[in-house]
């Protein structure tokens, strides 16, 4: 593989990164080639000892997503970080994907419960036409209003919890990466 082939491979696999990140990474390797050529090595030698550009790109992309997930905790970036981590090893599937899915399911079901509670006063409309006594309609009204309150509190708490979770999970992914790399902490 010569210099051109190395860079075209690298560029193809770096496309998922923002332009400035791509350029910064490519500049590092450009510099490396220049120094190597200056020292009298051939392009093929340099490319060979750098290693597979696809693997290099994958490493850069993973590092970037991990960094990114920690900075702004949005669902999309954390999902992407999860997916790239998975690319690093099948073993990781159990340690990353399983807790992630479990907690996301919990969050979604809590939202479903709070939505159901918030919407519960609507059931009064149905009872109005069912010919029940006004006392039972009133009782239902009070109960559903309480549920509405609980639903709102639960929803707010759930939003807070999911934000915490995203932050925590980004940190977990990072430490998981460190374990994979063989570092402690």
């Amino acid at each position: 593989m010569n210099k051109n082939e190395f860079f075209s491979q690298l560029k193809i696999h770096l496309q998922k990164l923002p332009k400035d990140e791509q350029e910064a990474a490519i500049a590092d390797y450009e510099e490396h080639f220049e120094h190597g050529l200056f020292k009298g090595r051939t392009e093929e030698e340099i490319a060979h000892s750098l290693g597979n550009p696809k693997k290099i790109a994958r490493e850069l992309v993973t590092e970037y997503h991990l960094e990114h997930a920690e900075q702004n905790s949005s669902y999309t970036s954390i999902t992407r970080a999860v997916l790239t981590s998975l690319g690093l090893g099948f073993l990781n599937l159990v340690f990353v994907l399983a807790p992630f899915i479990a907690i996301v399911v919990v969050i979604i079901s809590l939202y479903a419960v709070s939505l159901a509670f918030v919407l519960s006063p609507l059931s009064i409309i149905v009872t109005l036409f069912s010919g029940d006594s006004w006392q039972s309609v009133l009782l239902l009204g009070f109960i559903t209003l309480i549920l509405l309150g609980i639903g709102l509190v639960l929803g707010a708490w759930n939003t807070y919890f999911s934000k915490k979770f995203i932050n925590w999970f980004a940190r977990y992914l990072k430490s998981n990466q460190r374990i994979i790399r063989g570092e402690r902490k």
Binding site: A24, Y29, H32, S49, L50, N52, P53, I56, E59
Partner: peptide, 18 residues
């Protein structure tokens, strides 16, 4: 580093960036 032991030299740069 590569004088001391065999590595894929390309992996050092992502490390330096991190």
């Amino acid at each position: 580093i590569s004088e001391k032991f065999l590595i894929a030299e390309g992996t050092i740069y992502p490390l330096l960036r991190r």
